[in-house]
Amino acid sequence: MHWSKTLNQKKQAVRVLASLAAGCMMAWGIYRGEAAVVLGKAVNVCLECIGLG
């Protein structure tokens, strides 16, 4: 029971940390212009994706 409780607490901590990390990573990525790179790649035919690359 105690073991299970500790495991759940650890999982909860991982969830909180991962969520915070995810938020920070997205914000930092957008700030440094990654969304524009994604848009630039996605609106043009990706020759590699279709097997002509």
């Binding site: 938020g23 990573m25 997205m26 930092w28 990525g29 990654e34 969304a35 790179v37 994604v38 790649k41």
Partner: peptide, 19 residues
């Protein structure tokens, strides 16, 4: 696409989204 671009080695934006 982002990690292969000239200025970046890891996509924080996409990795954060997937995470």
């Amino acid at each position: 696409a982002v990690s292969g671009a000239m200025n970046f080695n890891l996509s924080f934006y996409v990795t954060g989204f997937v995470l």
